[in-house]
Write a protein that binds this DNA or RNA. Sequence first.
DNA 1: ACCTGAACACCGTTCAAGT
DNA 2: ACCTGAACACCGTTCAAGT
Lengths: 220, 220
Amino acid sequence: VTPRGASNGRERPAKPALTRKGIIATATAVMRAEGGERVTMRRLAKELGTGPASLYVYVKDTDDLHAAVLDELLAEVDLAVGAVEGGWRERLWTIVRSYSAVLHAHPSLARAAQVTPVSGPNYLAMADAILALLGQGGMAAGQAAWAADILLLIARGGAVEHGARRDCPSAGGDVSRGTSGSARARWAFDALLDGALETSRPPAPEHRARPDISVDEPAR
Amino acid sequence: VTPRGASNGRERPAKPALTRKGIIATATAVMRAEGGERVTMRRLAKELGTGPASLYVYVKDTDDLHAAVLDELLAEVDLAVGAVEGGWRERLWTIVRSYSAVLHAHPSLARAAQVTPVSGPNYLAMADAILALLGQGGMAAGQAAWAADILLLIARGGAVEHGARRDCPSAGGDVSRGTSGSARARWAFDALLDGALETSRPPAPEHRARPDISVDEPAR
DNA sequence: ACCTGAACACCGTTCAAGT
DNA sequence: ACCTGAACACCGTTCAAGT
């Protein structure tokens, strides 16, 4: 009823002017308080005291919103891992595990991250840090880019799949059911890195039909 | 209006009696014809000439439906790869690529597969075939179970992420943008296998705090 | 020019009431 | 006993109409 910032003292805590930053901050708060399923356009509009249509001025669509919230939360990933003992590999693991932790805490954001091309500053900084550490580990740039992709893809997929199994304990879908997920995550990390360090990337876009992989017969 | 199977000759092509098999067959048909977003309870009920409530007699929920459709489509994955030349590795790649192809063709099923514990016979047969080939390759059972999980997880995650980038060409989210996705997929497959063959699995559930990974400093 | 109420076109799931 | 119409409680997104 009251037109603009009249502040007559009985509305919501001041009704902050609608901005993209403000919307994302509110979305992040709802995320932490009620979980990702509640971070919807309509729910958020209600929280901000307006109609859902108003949000579309600042946010492209729901995926855009979720991606922005994720990037906000990725500020939690500490990239200053210089002090971590154990060399580049442990430093890298610290970052990857931290990324995984954020996604496991919010599986719906892991879902969004799969679906929306990430471009937030925190994600990009993390990707850079990962590439730098792979370089420190002696990995060639070509392999490093692919290894980083796969490492992050596994983290996202793992979070989505783990998030779903949350309420259904009798999963049984995995080949290796029962064992600790975090031990498997570490093993996958090590196996991929070990393999990436020795598996050469195929030379050129259309140089030869297939990379010449060693096709030795079974040793068993 | 007409009570039961009166077949007065002007209804839908006979209105097949509702069974789980029939529902899933219809769902599969809609899937192929209109894509996964249309395979909803309501859409399907309309197709079957009934209300959505009726489906819940035969199907637990939407995820259950999608998972069943996926298992149906997994019949396409040819497990008789004995004739594939190149040894166990190429045979395994044939299966994994085939699984990937089904998921890439239907990204919404890849999504469902992440979220629902698979239990369909075709999926289980595929998992068995994969474990057998890893065994042929000389991989210990512990590693093989984890390697199979990760291989399939990568396939699902890759399909979901690729499916989303379908309509947005200016992705840019990946660290390694531009390069062929299938070359990357093959590289990831080889790297993971190479690593899995030499990365030992940590000894026991709670034997020691962390697996003792070699933490050598960078070679560069 | 800027903003948004109300509408459009859907969802999944449940349950009371019908046959 | 079996089945389901109708309702409940939501969605995302658009656009015409208001200020």
